[in-house]
């Protein structure tokens, strides 16, 4: 491989460019006011971050990020957007100081902890001396899968992965029940311009009943209209038929 013969890999330019895009997207997610654009930007963020994971050689993480971040969470965020209130009062600056301080302190603590981390690619680090090497040596012999991460997830920790799958399934079920992707058909609507939701807030029992009643009424009225139109059309056809027969 010729690229590795350089002191600094040229792909670092691509890494830096992707990082710059991530920072731009993150700041604009914070600063923007249109909820729909924010949902779109989150999809873009996960797309770019997955591309960045690929460039860091973390192909499995990129796979998960692509499946969860770009696909499912965009749909779930859209569904959540339908239920959320579109207008809120601005937060006063006096209330923003304390969270900012907490974030700064936590960030400084993380930078302080970097000094205790083993160097990149250190042979004596815990990851390279403990069970990790054992897995790498035994995977090809015992399971015959070239990808060690997949072997650990699916075989060595199979029960653990099964439990995770159950947890994620129940969580997804809960989210679907809360958002009502299928059950609330036509009850809650919103215009994409973000002007009016109906009902405007998260539905209480009363408004839900009212809206469903309205919905039924409108559906029945439209059904009545439709049947009358269709019968008229049919009778017209019949008349034509009669004429033809005569």
């Amino acid at each position: 491989m010729m690229l590795s013969s350089y002191a600094v890999a040229p792909t670092i330019i691509l890494d830096l460019a992707l990082m710059a895009i991530l920072i731009i997207v993150a700041f604009s997610i914070v600063r923007m006011r249109s909820l729909f654009a924010i949902v779109m930007l989150q999809g873009v963020y996960s797309l770019v971050s997955a591309a960045w994971f690929v460039s860091l050689d973390a192909v499995d993480v990129a796979f998960t990020e692509a499946a969860v971040g770009a696909g499912v969470s965009t749909v779930l965020m859209l569904a959540a957007m339908l239920l959320a209130n579109r207008k809120s009062d601005p937060v006063p600056i006096s209330k923003q100081i304390a969270p900012l301080l907490v974030v700064i302190v936590a960030g400084l603590a993380m930078f302080y902890a970097i000094g205790d981390m083993p160097a990149f690619g250190d042979v004596n680090s815990p990851a390279n001396t403990g069970v990790g090497m054992d897995y790498i040596e035994r995977t090809t012999k015992e399971i015959h899968i070239p990808n060690v991460v997949t072997a650990v997830l699916a075989s060595y920790r199979g029960y653990d992965t099964f439990g995770e799958a159950v947890v994620i399934f129940s969580a997804g079920l809960g989210v679907l029940l809360l958002l009502g992707l299928n059950g609330n058909a036509g009850r809650w609507t919103a215009s994409p311009s973000g002007q009016h939701t109906y009902p405007p807030m998260a539905p209480s029992a009363n408004s839900r009943l009212r809206s469903s009643r309205d919905n039924i009424k409108s559906v029945t009225s439209s059904a009545v209209k439709k049947t009358s139109v269709s019968t008229a059309r049919k009778s017209k056809k019949k008349r034509f038929k009669d004429k033809g027969d005569n």
Binding site: V75, L78, L82, G180, G183, N184, A185, G186, W188, T189
Partner: peptide
């Protein structure tokens, strides 16, 4: 979402 204004479309 654009077309039906909601994700669960009534059938």
């Amino acid at each position: 979402f654009f077309n039906y204004r909601c994700l669960g479309v009534s059938l």
